[in-house]
Simulated scan of single mutants.
Amino acid sequence: MRTVDMTAPSFGLDNRINTCREPTVKDTLQSSTYATGTESSKAVDGCITQRYSSGCCMHTATDGRSSAYWAVDFNENIVIESIKIYYRDEPNTNQQKSRFGGYEIYISNSTSILSPCYEDTVSTISAVDLAPSITSCTGSARYLGVYVERSSRAYNWYSFSAVLEICEVEVYDCADGTFKSGTICDSCSSNCIGSTCDINTGECSACIDGFHGSTCDQLCSIGCSTGTCNQATGQCDGACSSGYYGAGCDSACSDNCLNGECEQYTGTCGACYDGYYGDTCSLSCSVKCATLACSQNGGKCSACSAGYYGIQCDTACPSNCLAKTCNQDDGLCLGRKTTSKNVLRASSNIAAIPRVEKGAKMALKNYVLFSED
């Protein structure tokens, strides 16, 4: 187990690390320093020129040490997706390749680094890449280190002492279209506008039409007439489609609403189909309504079947009403039946009139007094 002491003095605010998103100032350190102007911060200053004369490269001592390292502290866990290293590259590249060959990369959440996530194993000096892109060191980490070991030499072309000459290290966090999900970079929802999202939470800044929610994973109601809704609340952006109501237009109007239409926020029907009444046309008109039609407010029948009266035609007309018909509002008969007692009474009244002309008597006799016994 190798340990990198990250408690060594920092080198000031010029220690920045290049990332693909939100680059921030970071602390770096190295095992030794070759000369002034070759400190660890040179590997994160944004300069990728691979010449020592450019002043862009960190450089450890060349005094025969068996190991050398360079390390960075991100100050918090980040999700690493890839690493790009720019090593010193001079016209006589074999010297740099002999020093860089067999390098190892470590990532860890602590300063106790257990095993490398990448190890250079090329067997020939010509195969050493002085500007490698590393994609195998992925995951969540706070620390990253580059290490060379020369206590033993795997190949005779390796340098005898451990030296590092790194001009730039770029560490790429989750790329556009991905976000940090535990120890990996997960894809943003395809329902996010542009398929991009917050790198830390995965939340979408806006949704494509038809979706809502922080990650745009919920469908807008099919009742939204525009097919779009508020990302946070799911409320339809416009009116409801015919047949739906509610803030989210996700409730169906009553089947008894005329043409299936109702008020958007309350669900009150504009009108009812014949046979129903009430705000949502959920109540049945009285079966005694002549046409099975009644007023939406209160259920008053437009007319009663023969023999009934009242608002809902639920009271029988008096039995002596002619043809069992009476006034719908008060139940007064529209005509009364003729009885034998009435006829006799009428005849007596006619006989008691002495001076009535014959024609008038006959007319009076034929008159039936419609009054109850």
Rank of each mutant, 00 (worst) to 15 (best):
S302V: 11
C253N: 05
Q231N: 07
Y276G: 00
A206T: 09
N191S: 14
C317Y: 06
G260A: 07
N256Q: 14
C224L: 06
N256E: 02
C294D: 01
G270S: 14
T228G: 10
I208S: 12
A306H: 09
C269S: 01
I222M: 13
N191W: 03
A293K: 11
Q296E: 02
A252S: 14
I208L: 15
I208K: 14
T201H: 10
T226Y: 03
C317P: 09
H212C: 04
Y308Q: 00
Q218H: 10
D237F: 11
S284N: 09
I193K: 10
S254W: 02
Y244P: 00
T226E: 02
C216R: 09
L219K: 05
G260P: 04
G202T: 04
S241N: 15
G238Q: 13
C224P: 06
N256P: 02
D198T: 09
N191I: 03
A293F: 00
G275I: 12
E263H: 15
A206R: 13
A271P: 05
C294W: 07
Q264F: 03
A306Q: 15
L258Q: 04
C289T: 12
I208G: 08
S284K: 04
G202Y: 01
G310M: 03
C207H: 06
T196H: 09
T315A: 14
I311Q: 11
C262P: 00
T291Y: 10
S286C: 06
S221W: 06
E203P: 03
C281F: 06
S195C: 12
C197Y: 04
S251N: 11
N230Y: 01
D255G: 12
A306G: 11
V287R: 04
L258N: 07
E261G: 08
Y309M: 01
C216K: 08
V287F: 08
G227V: 04
A247I: 03
S242M: 13
D217I: 07
S302N: 15
C281R: 01
Y276F: 11
C224R: 01
D217K: 14
D198S: 12
A239R: 11
G194E: 14
T266Q: 08
N256L: 04
T201M: 13
C272A: 13
C257L: 06
C236I: 01
C313L: 11
Y277K: 05
S284P: 03
S251T: 13
C262V: 04
Q218I: 09
T228R: 15
A206P: 08
S305P: 02
Y277D: 01
I208Y: 07
Y273R: 12
D250S: 15
G310E: 08
L283A: 10
T315L: 13
G307C: 12
S195G: 11
G299A: 10
Q235A: 09
Q218L: 14
Q218K: 15
G267D: 01
S286P: 08
D209E: 13
F211C: 00
A247Q: 06
S221V: 12
C285S: 10
C269V: 03
G246Q: 11
C224M: 08
L219Y: 09
G234Y: 02
T215N: 14
A303Q: 04
Q296F: 00
T201Q: 05
T266F: 03
C197P: 09
E203Q: 15
D237E: 13
C240E: 00
G267H: 02
A290R: 05
T233W: 04
D314H: 10
T196N: 13
S282T: 11
L292H: 07
D279W: 08
